[in-house]
Amino acid sequence: MFYWLMKYVFVGPIVKAIYRPWVTGRENVPVTGAAILASNHLSVIDSVFLPLMLDRPVSFLAKAEYFTGRGLKGWATKWFMKGTGQIALDRSGGPASEAALNTALQVIGRGDLLGIYPEGTRSPDGKLYRGRTGIARMALEAKVPVIPVIMVDTGTMMPIGQTLPRVMRVGVVIGEPLDFSRYAGMEGDRYVLRSVTDEIMVALQRLGGQEYSDEYASTVKNRLAAS
């Protein structure tokens, strides 16, 4: 109930009226049944605009820090994330990451849509970076299609470090589903997981035309921070 109030009564109508977002390829999202939405990640507001442009709820894996902030901003962020069905993702690895994976598989098991950012973090410079193989493992274990999604201009609207979004139009481009059923039963093969992940990233690059860099976005962020 809270999700529908947020989307259709409180946040949704206001955001759509102010920013007038557009979407193409909405017909590529199935009306029913589970699927993974694999999106590029340019801004924190990607998790706001993509669900608003779809008729079905989407649960995103969101970094755990969004749920632990302090003060008014931290409370508001946590309230919004929980209200829109986002899942806290502990990126420290080990049992925490395994628990997040299991929660994500439960979402898919209910027949719902799961949103994932394969790059693992926001792009520091607008490029598309190497994907993490967790998305491939989920897709193969759950036996669901992966739908590539491109967020357009959200990084310009609200780049990293900016508190409030600029008033401008942003868009969502949704590609055709990717079928990986040919790899059934091979989710334990790391080479298969890398191949599937790379295929997803190629689909994203072709759909959005972003410059691709074959290194992890987190590596680039750490290098920039060190310099």
Rank of each mutant, 00 (worst) to 15 (best):
L5H: 12
P13E: 04
V15D: 03
V15K: 04
I18N: 01
I18H: 05
Y19H: 10
Y19E: 05
R20D: 09
R20H: 12
R20W: 08
W22Y: 14
T24Q: 11
R26T: 15
N28W: 08
V29F: 05
G33L: 11
N40I: 04
H41Q: 06
L42E: 11
L42S: 12
S43K: 09
V48A: 10
F49I: 03
L50V: 08
D55I: 00
V58A: 07
A62F: 10
A64E: 15
F67I: 03
G71K: 10
G74K: 08
G74V: 08
W79P: 08
F80Q: 13
F80P: 04
G85L: 06
L89R: 04
D90W: 09
S92C: 08
G93Q: 08
G93Y: 06
P95K: 11
A100I: 11
T103P: 01
T103L: 04
Q106V: 03
V107Y: 00
G109M: 04
R110N: 14
T121L: 02
R122I: 00
S123Y: 00
R132G: 07
R137G: 05
A139C: 13
K143Q: 13
I147R: 03
V149W: 03
I150D: 01
D153S: 15
T156S: 13
P165M: 12
R166G: 10
M168W: 14
R169I: 14
V170H: 15
G175H: 05
G175L: 06
L178Y: 06
A184D: 14
M186E: 12
E187W: 14
E187S: 15
G188Q: 14
D189P: 07
D189I: 10
V192I: 06
R194K: 12
V196Q: 03
Q205R: 14
L207S: 05
L207G: 04
G209Y: 02
E215F: 08
Y216G: 06
A217H: 11
T219M: 10
T219F: 11
S227E: 15
